[in-house]
């Protein structure tokens, strides 16, 4: 085996990280406002199937991605209505959304099952730069959405830590009563950020469909990436830029089984190797649960707590 293969695996990891980054950025800003959205897997699936269906009937890539954003936002709006206005249990609502999204995407996706994707996202051609050894494939070998995602992570990071609305957002997750006392509507902030978060998850699903999945597959399209994205939020300690590094690491773990298979390396059966990303996510979660790590992480303090003005 040569080092070139691992280089390509790494480049693939950076590519696959796009969905992970988008999904975990979405989950992150949702959670920053104090709302947990466990439905990521459902949003990704719905985003993917929507993008496929729209792309299939119109042939328009950007329209397809746009509609997956709309679908993600719409699902998040339902989640926000249930959890913020109706104060339903956020965890159960998120899980209901996973089940609903899984079912609906399978239902919509039935007629297109096995069909190959209608449009693909072209990689940007950087000319000479793309041909450079090592950094060519790793840095200059991706599509526009991947680069946009990196910029987005930076923008969200600046928004969170350098702007006034970002400050209010963080305060809403940590101390909603204080925000309320300042005369800012907690509900509005939670609604807005839950919906934006859902939109990002939807886009993550749509991008995944066109860039990574070969065809819509009833049950195995996203394969638990949504759950890995949730673990990634913890791993990145609710900070957008760390999500990029984490996503590449997790993306690498997701990619390794394919590389080993492609290289005909059969040290372990492929089914066993496929367990690896999930086990590794679990190990990371455990490592982050030590008291010391917890102090450093800084999870939003009122995460998952509905805010009711009269109850203190």
């Amino acid at each position: 085996m040569n080092s070139n293969v691992w280089l390509l695996t790494f480049a693939d990891a950076i590519s696959i990280a796009t969905t992970l980054i988008l999904a975990s950025l979405g989950a992150m800003i949702t959670e920053r406002s104090g709302v947990i959205n466990l439905g990521v897997e459902g949003y990704l699936l719905m985003g993917a199937v929507t993008a496929f269906v729209v792309g299939d009937s119109t042939g328009q890539l950007w329209l397809a991605l746009g509609s997956s954003i709309v679908v993600g936002a719409a699902m998040a709006l339902v989640h926000a209505t249930l959890t913020v206005t109706l104060r339903a249990n956020q965890i159960v609502s998120g899980l209901a959304m996973v089940i609903f999204g899984t079912g609906l995407s399978q239902f919509i996706g039935k007629p297109i099952e096995g069909k190959s994707r209608p449009v693909i996202i072209e990689k940007i051609d950087f000319g000479v730069l793309s041909d450079l050894p090592i950094i060519g494939p790793v840095i200059f070998g991706h599509d526009p959405i991947t680069y946009a995602t990196w910029v987005l992570a930076l923008v969200i990071s600046l928004y969170l830590h350098r702007t006034r609305p970002g400050l209010i957002l963080r305060a809403t997750g940590d101390a909603p009563a204080t925000v309320d006392a300042q005369g800012v509507s907690v509900k509005r902030i939670r609604y807005v950020h839950t919906v934006i978060g859902g939109a990002l998850m939807g886009l993550g699903g749509g991008w995944y469909m066109f860039a990574r999945a070969a065809a819509w597959n009833q049950s195995a399209t996203t394969n638990g990436i949504g759950w890995i994205a949730l673990a990634l939020v913890v791993f990145a300690s609710w900070r957008p830029l760390r999500a990029i590094a984490g996503a590449v690491l997790f993306g690498f773990c997701l990619q390794v089984p394919f590389t080993l298979q492609g290289q005909q390396i059969n040290i372990l059966p492929s089914e066993i190797v496929s367990m690896f990303p999930y086990l590794m996510t679990l190990v990371v979660l455990v490592a982050l649960s030590t008291p010391r790590a917890r102090r450093l992480l800084g999870a939003p303090k009122m995460l998952g707590q509905p805010f009711v003005r009269d109850e203190r």
Binding site: V78, T81, L82, L86, A88, N89, V92, S93, A96, M97, V98, I99, F100, G101, T102, G103, L104, Q106, F107
Partner: peptide, 13 residues
């Protein structure tokens, strides 16, 4: 499955 998810969402609401 869609109905199951929808039933739960409505029940939550």
């Amino acid at each position: 499955v869609v109905l199951q998810g929808a039933v739960l969402l409505f029940a939550l609401g």
